[in-house]
Write a protein that binds this DNA or RNA. Structure first.
Lengths: 212, 212, 212, 212
DNA sequence: TATGAATGAGGTTTCATTCAT
DNA sequence: AATGAATGAAACCTCATTCAT
């Protein structure tokens, strides 16, 4: 990774054929990244797995890092879509139930492809400078704000909403990402969601709600 | 990085001269790792920065990954030493104060060299298979257990101590590592330590204690 | 550039549209060649600068070298036209004045686009085998012969007219091409033309004529 | 040739072994350059012809252009040595004989390896920005100045010595380089040297001297 | 006829590792 | 024990050219 080159794909795929090609490449990147990790991932193999010539690959992705950035974006989009679908389902509920659902949703998405999720998490610091992580973080934070704003009644001397989002966001992220692979065996996804939810309700000063 | 080779350094440095040599190499690894990241770190540069011939380097480190593993170990040892020093200072105190101190200590260590801490965090998944991370986690967990055991009185249906340690450990880790770089400006180290401490006391059902 | 392929453009453009297209391509070749040099010139960029699809380009130019050869031809044609226009203007004059005019004309053409002239000069050895340079040289030699024949009265043991043309042609070429870029500051185009003319009149045993 | 990188070899060969290695590489560059031209010259082939691993090559030459620059330097050094040897032989002589000898010397050096000389001449514009051509020209000019200064007695309105050097130097260069390959068959090296010498004596206003 | 997506051979360069000195 | 020259596999990336649409 000598120098920051282009940040974005060289061309935007317009025709249907190219779109399929780009999809195949991104998918191959996912497979190879999980199998090998970023350092050992090599572009030729990605092209081969995608069933695409390496020249075609380079028409859309100017360098190795761009592959991973595209994958990161696809993954983030899918996660957003997934979570939003869950959220719109239940608009009304007790605060604690809301939280529990949110956490469950995150865990459920994570469970769709835990290895990929893990691989992508590790790769973020490496391609960081190629990727607009600020936006990514902002999107998640906005989600959280929507969720927490109506629930939170700060008392005198209590942290601001932004501070709260920082605390809750980071801690949850850890618990649902890196940490997830090493959790105690006694923790099912459901139990974990519950417990995280309990963490937040107590921290936020909300009433706990019994599980129904 | 073809295959997992040796896990440990080839020789254990006995004489004083060799020890200085190994130290210089590990220190150079730290510098280069921060400057370049793991993928771009190359062994020749490490040797040069260390003022050591590449041949000598290979007498003590069988491969590139071993450099980073050694650095990781040195860092963990220093962290342990640092934290333990802080802990033994105050044996008695209210639970909340104890927690607050613990979190402060972690933050303080982190602040000694934030970039290195960050770089090492990112590198763990890459050299994972060369490093005995289980031990590393276990050590931290043991610390936490020592800390939490006397404070925690689980009620009926509450999580076990191990589960608690998982929750508390992961969330704190995130808040004091990756997250630390992106925290809101309003969060000084002290305010952050306080808030994290408040998170845990409320979660653990302890009384909050005002700062003295 | 694996092997000598075709020497000539695939099609001869007949319709007006195609002619404009070919012109645009040759013009783009000139621009890119000056900017990048032959080795870095790439066909896709030429097509883009010409505002033409790469496919269209390949309908008229079978390979990269053909682009440069066409440019070389265009340039030679323009030079011939330019010089002939100057020559026909003055039919009668003293020999020295004639020579001075000839040299001036060459310098004047050179001054129209010195960078292009330079670039084309460098590129000749590279595309040599694709281009009929013999003809090109012959044309210039014929010009010179027309010019020198009436002026030259060889004495006993003196060089033949062909030898003379070789000497005069080569030396003038150098003085009006590569050398021109590095000439002493004291040499204006006019002074240089004068001096070259003086070189030839003395060599040819002609009387020098003062500038009018 | 994306960017001007290093201008000089990475290492300076110190040990005898390395010196032989560098020599072998430069020699192989000469062979391959003559056979293929600069554009088709590829580094792997140079290494192979030199009987050296490509890695070793890159320890001394940071990029393709550096190979040719080194060759250019070796050639210029050899030429200087060759010419100086000839010049010191005859200190005293008539001006015309002196000039004739100088021209002969240039032709003789040229004849040692005409194809290489030709190849190197063509390659100068390509690697120009990597090579310090200014110095190269200056060296030749200094030679010429030494030669011409005692011979030249400028009359009123005649060109300065520097201007003279420019004229003489460029024209001779052309006649002894590019032009040499296409000379008329009637021109032996000796006849050519004579004729060039005659060109200069008449231009410089010296008396011609019969060949002894 | 025009387009530009697709190809893949071919090229440059890096760098972990060995081993003669 | 120390050195650093040598190795060469392996990686990245370009670009002339083709051909389906």
């Amino acid at each position: 990774m000598p120098l920051p080159k282009h940040l974005k794909p060289r061309k935007v795929p317009k025709q249907q054929r190219s779109r399929a090609l780009v999809d195949a490449i991104v998918e191959a990147t996912a497979r190879v990244l999980v199998a090998r990790g970023f350092e050992s991932l090599n572009v030729a193999e990605v092209a081969e797995v995608a069933g695409v010539s390496i020249g075609s690959l380079y028409q859309y992705f100017p360098h190795k890092e761009a592959l991973v950035v595209a994958l990161l974006e696809r993954h983030a989009d899918r996660e957003s879509a997934f979570l939003e679908a869950r959220f719109t389902e239940l608009r009304a509920a007790t605060p604690a139930a809301l939280l529990r659902t949110a956490v469950s949703a995150v865990l459920a998405f994570r469970a769709l492809d835990p290895e990929l999720h893990q691989a992508l998490t590790s790769v973020i610091p490496i391609v960081g400078r190629f990727d607009d992580l600020r936006n990514r973080g902002a999107r998640t934070a906005a989600h959280l704000r929507t969720l927490l704003e109506p629930l939170y009644r700060p008392k005198e001397g209590a942290p601001s909403l932004d501070e709260l989002i920082f605390i809750v966001g980071n801690a949850t992220h850890s618990l649902t990402h890196e940490g997830l692979l090493r959790r105690p065996e006694s923790f099912s996804d459901q139990r974990l969601a519950e417990e995280i939810s309990r963490l937040w309700t107590s921290y936020l000063g909300l009433e706990a709600t019994p599980l129904e």
